[in-house]
C-alpha cells in the first residue's frame, strides 16, 4: 500500500492507482473529459490537472496518468490548479464551442467566455473514440493521422474500414461529435451506423454538416 496526502487528507491506496482514482476514492471532484473507465488513461485534455509536491517545487500534472507515490502531496483545487483548469476550459471552448460536453464543463466551472480566436473544430483529439474502438470493440478501425496542426482522426485512407463493425461506439463516447453521422455521404462515413439507427435529424429535409449523433443532438436543438 502507498500512503499519500490529498488536500491534507491522508489516504492509503494500492500501488499502481492513479492520483485521479485516489482523489475520487476520497470524494474530491476532479473534472475529466478524455478519461473513461475501461479505457487506458491518455492525458490528452489536461482537465484533470492537479498540483503535486510542496511549494516552491510543486508542479502541475495530469492526475489521470500520474501513478501514486509514497509520501506524495496532492492539491486538487489550489489557486494554481483552478487557474490552469479554467485556461484549459477556455482553450477547449475556443476550439470546439458547439460541444455540449464542453459547454457543460464550462458552465460547471463558471467559465462564461473565452479570450482566444474562436474556431469551430469538429474534434478535440481526445482519443476517446480511438481507444473505444481498439480496447472495447477490439476493432482498431480508426486512429490518429498526421501530426501537429494537421493531426486528425479517421480511418486509413479515409475509406470505410474493413474491420469496422458499425457499432457506433466511437460516436457514443465522442464529446465533440467528430465522428458525426455523414449519412448524406455514406462513402465518407466513419462507420455509417447512423444510417441504421435513423437519428431524428435524418428525417429532416436537410442534413446539415454540423449535425451529429449526440443525445441530445446540439445541432438539432439549435434548429428547433
Amino acid at each position: 500500500m502507498i500512503n499519500l496526502t490529498i488536500n491534507g487528507v491522508p489516504v492509503s491506496v494500492e500501488k499502481g492507482t492513479t492520483v485521479l482514482e485516489a482523489a475520487r476514492y476520497l470524494g474530491f471532484p476532479i473534472p475529466t473529459l478524455c478519461h473513461k473507465e475501461g479505457l487506458t488513461p491518455y492525458g490528452a485534455c489536461r482537465l484533470c490537472v492537479v498540483e503535486i509536491g510542496r511549494e516552491p517545487n510543486s508542479r502541475l500534472v495530469s492526475s489521470c496518468t500520474y501513478p501514486v507515490e509514497e509520501g506524495l502531496v496532492v492539491r486538487t483545487a489550489s489557486e494554481r490548479v483552478v487557474k490552469a483548469r479554467r485556461m484549459v476550459i477556455e482553450l477547449l471552448l475556443a476550439s470546439c464551442p458547439q460541444s455540449k460536453t464542453i459547454q457543460d464543463i464550462a458552465s460547471r466551472h463558471n467559465v462564461r467566455q473565452q479570450r482566444f480566436r474562436q474556431e469551430h473544430e469538429d474534434c478535440i483529439l481526445c482519443g476517446l473514440c480511438v481507444r473505444m474502438c481498439e480496447e472495447q470493440m477490439m476493432a482498431g478501425a480508426i486512429g490518429f493521422r498526421g501530426r501537429g496542426r494537421g493531426r486528425s482522426l479517421g480511418t486509413p485512407f479515409d475509406v470505410q474500414s474493413e474491420v469496422c463493425r458499425l457499432c457506433g461506439g466511437c460516436m457514443e463516447v465522442c464529446p465533440a461529435c467528430q465522428a458525426r453521422c455523414t449519412f448524406n455521404e455514406p462513402e465518407k462515413a466513419i462507420c455509417g451506423a447512423c444510417a441504421n439507427l435513423s437519428p431524428p435529424c435524418v428525417e429532416k429535409e436537410q442534413f446539415h454538416d454540423m449535425m451529429c449523433y449526440l443525445t441530445p443532438c446540439v445541432a438539432c436543438e439549435i434548429k428547433k
Binding site: 481498439e134 486512429g143 486509413p156 485512407f157 474491420v163
Partner: peptide, 12 residues
Amino acid sequence: RRLVDIYGVATF
C-alpha cells in the same frame, strides 16, 4: 499490426 497504426506512422 493494425492498418491504422501503420497509417498513423506513415502520416506522422
